[in-house]
Design a protein around this nucleic acid. Structure first.
Length: 490
RNA sequence: GCCGCUAUCGUCUAAUGGCUAGGACGCCACCCUCUCACGGUGGUAAUUGGGGUUCGAAUCCCCAUAGCGGUACCA
């Protein structure tokens, strides 16, 4: 049988980290084993679904490189466009007598649940409307709209379902539940829309999904869906419930908490798709050896559902930063710069303008990024290197190294200036460094009165690349100009 | 409350009955060094508790505890 997986988010918020990781695992599984990965939007809840969230999800997954095979051309399936299909299956359930109308109001249902809970029972629907007569129903229809519930007992009887429902989860092993604990749940709301249990089951069957890989918050739903599959005589897919990603305080990652729970925010923060992908893959999965720095193809190569951990994991910014920094250093300068410029372009669409960078000379930026990359954890860190593009603001106090004096500093800078003005050799990092060392040696100066003030004169920063690297990027005349400006401050 | 899932350093994880419980992040120290980084070396730190099974348990079983999830005419 062909392997077919899917990601089926509802567009009620921006692409969530958890959803993206679920998508990634589905994608990895299909890529590893050969198959098709399908994107389906579950927008049956018209009230909360928004087109803009859909767009955010496409863009997010596309950016990560988690591509789907169906539908083609980056289209998606939408449940809102498949309503006829659900109708068809619903009619089938009606014909079998597996559904009944329910006229109970939300208030009545809540009251019922509360009572059962207080009695220490499992809160489930009492079956209040199950045995209404035709006359009663006709009467009720005059004033009320009805929802449709599944008659679980009847299905169990007619389809010979066991008392203990079970399924073999590919991550957790066998999971069981007593069928008595499942009440008659609603599959069609009173407004006529199908709810997710139902539409999802129909779609998974119609799309011939072989493996349902999803968050473990769906474990309890699985039993309801199992009943639905049986009621409709549809083939049951395999299930794999992957552990959740938790906040630092162990609570479920929520859309409201901000921080790094949304892919959009992580992209905004300047993470590389490679770094984020690497990090996400390692949340709940490992290649079973000591490798951690992994490319997508390496992850695909080692991926196995059996290697997925059962327990939830906590999102750790430190590790993400580390991995992302590793990727930044690993990419060659040109690739890194291209990613950076693409990101700046993207930022502009979202209200942040750094045209200073997008308009700068590319060859020049290439040098800048080369000397800055060991100091970057995210692309955003490169934004702080704008002193390479405009004159820095230099604090005169910062020019003086530790316990040195303004006089010694000024002396050092003047010696450098003189040497640079007379310098005629190659303008490369190594010779510039040699020149500075020579000054220290011949003029009997301290390193701190040469390297430090020159570096601050060029960058204005307490921490930055070395003076020889900065000088190399800035060029001879700009370097001399900035040193001269610093001297005038002392 | 009820049902389900889970439990290894602070965090991500390895070790599916057998070396001193391994690696990574973080943190600390040292080296490199004008600085901040990068890099290198070393250190810190864990099997939730209690019972079993076994020659032997992080690993299997039971109980407790804790965390998470579900308990909707949300998905």
């Amino acid at each position: 049988m062909e392997i077919r997986t899917r990601i089926a988010p509802s567009p009620t918020g921006k692409l969530h980290l958890g959803t993206a990781r679920t998508a990634l695992f589905n994608f990895l599984f299909t890529r590893k084993n050969g198959g098709k990965f399908i994107f389906r939007i579950e927008d049956t809840d018209v009230e909360r679904s928004k087109k803009s969230f859909e767009t955010d999800m496409f863009e997010g997954l596309d950016w990560l490189g988690v591509n789907w095979n169906e539908p083609k051309n980056k289209e998606v399936y939408r449940q809102s466009e498949r309503l006829d299909l659900y109708q068809k299956y619903f009619k089938e359930l009606q014909k079998s007598g597996f559904v009944y109308e329910c006229f109970c109001t939300p208030a009545e249902l809540a009251q019922e649940r509360k009572q059962m809970q207080q009695a220490g029972q499992i809160p489930q629907y009492s079956g209040h409307c199950k045995d209404l007569s035709e006359d009663e129903k006709t009467e009720l229809r005059k004033t009320k709209k009805s929802a449709w519930r599944l008659d679980v007992k009847k299905i169990a009887q007619l389809k010979n379902l066991p008392q203990i429902l079970k399924f073999k989860d590919l991550v957790h092993g066998e999971i069981k539940k007593n069928i008595n604990e499942i009440g008659d749940f609603v599959i069609i709301k009173s407004d006529g829309a199908s709810i997710f249990f139902f539409a999802g089951v129909v779609d998974d069957a119609e799309m011939k999904i072989s493996h349902v890989i999803r968050g473990e918050d769906h474990i309890s739903n699985t039993f309801s869906q199992l009943i639905l599959f049986k009621a409709l005589d549809l083939p049951v897919p395999q299930f794999a419930h992957i552990p959740l990603i938790l906040e630092k305080d162990r609570s479920k990652m929520s859309k409201r908490k901000g921080g790094h729970s949304r892919i959009f925010d992580l992209r905004l923060a300047g993470y590389l798709p490679q770094g984020l992908l690497n990090f996400m893959a390692l949340l709940g999965w490992s290649p079973k050896d000591d490798r951690e720095f992994l490319s997508l193809s390496e992850i695909i190569e080692s991926f196995d559902l059996k290697g997925i951990k059962k327990s939830a994991s906590i999102f750790d910014d430190d590790k993400l930063n580390y991995l992302n920094g590793l990727w930044i250093r690993h990419l060659d300068d040109e690739e890194l710069l291209n990613q950076f410029l693409g990101w700046v372009e993207w930022l502009k669409q979202h209200g942040e303008d750094y045209s200073r960078f997008s308009e700068a000379d590319k060859e020049y930026l290439l040098k800048c990024i080369a000397i800055c990359k060991t100091r970057m954890a995210t692309l955003r860190d490169f934004l702080a290197a704008d002193y390479l593009l405009v004159d820095p603001k230099v604090d005169p106090h910062l020019l003086v190294f530790r316990k040195s004096s303004p006089e010694a500093t000024k002396n050092g800078l003047e010696k450098i200036k003189l040497a640079l003005e007379n310098y005629q050799g190659d303008w490369e990092v190594e010779p510039i460094f040699n020149l500075l060392s020579e000054i220290v040696e011949k003029k009997h100066l301290a390193n701190g009165d040469v390297f430090w003030p020159m570096r601050v004169a060029l960058s204005g920063k307490e921490g930055s690349p070395s003076p020889q690297e900065l000088a190399w990027v800035l060029g001879q005349s700009e370097t001399i100009k900035r040193i001269d400006q610093a001297i005038s401050l002392l």
